[in-house]
């Protein structure tokens, strides 16, 4: 079976810095893949390459949402979203002066069509579309448990809720693959537990998840497979148990020599 997403020899160079060097791995249907590594390893950079923010310097990214495979490197972010790749940001990027509902309604943009003329004339098509936008948005807010705050300002939400709103916004674009960049960062244990349940619910909804996370306990408990990056290179790939015992991974995290002592 062709993987949902195939990263094939991807490199990304920023001036003299090799942020990613010849990275290859696959993401399969119905899977949750963990992406870990020390600070500056290149995790966010690979998300940005997949999501269309950066164009890889070399290598291929192939996405297979249905029957056909598409080589997507160099596509614009809005094109990626349309194809079915959604993402959240490491430092939350909400539309803070808008309401919670509006944040989600904007995410419905790529699945709706009303243009200038239809909006001004309020055609029956536009009206029914607006109605379904509100309904779909409320459904996603319910999914993450924020429906009751739909009409408050996004900036008034607690930190954990802002993270969940960002996830809801990504989900509202109807993705096949969801990229979560450190969703548990700054969350308290209770919020983290809710997040874990949410991620499982997302998987059950048939959406594939790629997860960057520093909280090892969290990653090891929910990911079936992990990819470890260090200094832009892929140093290990496999199940949580293998990764935990892999000497190269321990070395990357704890420094040279630590592997021997461990």
């Amino acid at each position: 079976m062709t993987p949902l997403l195939k990263i094939d020899g991807v490199s990304k160079r920023f001036g003299g810095l090799m942020a990613l060097a010849d990275i290859s791995f696959d993401v399969h249907e119905k899977e949750i893949l963990g992406l870990i590594g020390p600070n500056g390893a290149g995790k966010t950079t690979i998300f940005n390459c997949i999501a269309g923010v950066y164009k890889p310097t070399s290598g291929d990214i192939v996405f297979t949402p249905g029957d056909t495979s598409i080589r997507i490197n160099g596509f614009k972010p809005e094109k990626m979203t349309e194809l079915g790749i959604a993402r959240t940001f490491q430092n939350i990027r909400l539309f803070t002066s808008l309401t919670v509902l509006d944040n989600i309604r904007i995410a419905r943009h790529c699945r709706t069509k009303a243009n200038f003329l239809r909006s001004v004339l309020r055609t029956p098509f536009q009206k029914s579309e607006e109605k379904s936008i509100v309904e779909d948005s409320m459904r996603w807010l319910e999914f993450v448990g924020l429906a009751s705050q739909a009409l408050s300002d996004a900036s008034s939400l607690s930190y954990g809720n802002q993270r969940r709103l960002e996830i809801a916004r990504a989900l509202a674009t109807e993705p096949k693959l969801l990229l979560l960049d450190e969703p548990a960062a700054g969350m308290n244990p209770k919020e983290t537990r809710i997040l874990v349940d949410l991620i499982h619910a997302i998987l059950d909804a048939g959406i594939c998840v790629m997860l960057i996370e520093h909280d090892m306990k969290l990653v090891m408990s929910i990911c079936e497979r992990l990819v470890v990056l260090d200094h832009g290179t892929l140093i290990a790939e496999g199940g949580p148990r293998d990764i935990r015992e892999n000497p190269r991974v321990i070395e990357a995290y704890l420094g040279r020599g630590a592997a021997g002592n461990a």
Partner: peptide, 26 residues
């Protein structure tokens, strides 16, 4: 009418955060 429509919301998104707007498909 423009303000309260798909068009207006896309503009607000661009004003608030262009990168997030693009990730929403605008």
């Amino acid at each position: 009418r423009m303000e309260d429509s798909r068009l207006g919301r896309a503009w607000y998104a661009i004003r608030e955060d262009p990168l997030a707007a693009a990730s929403c498909g605008v």
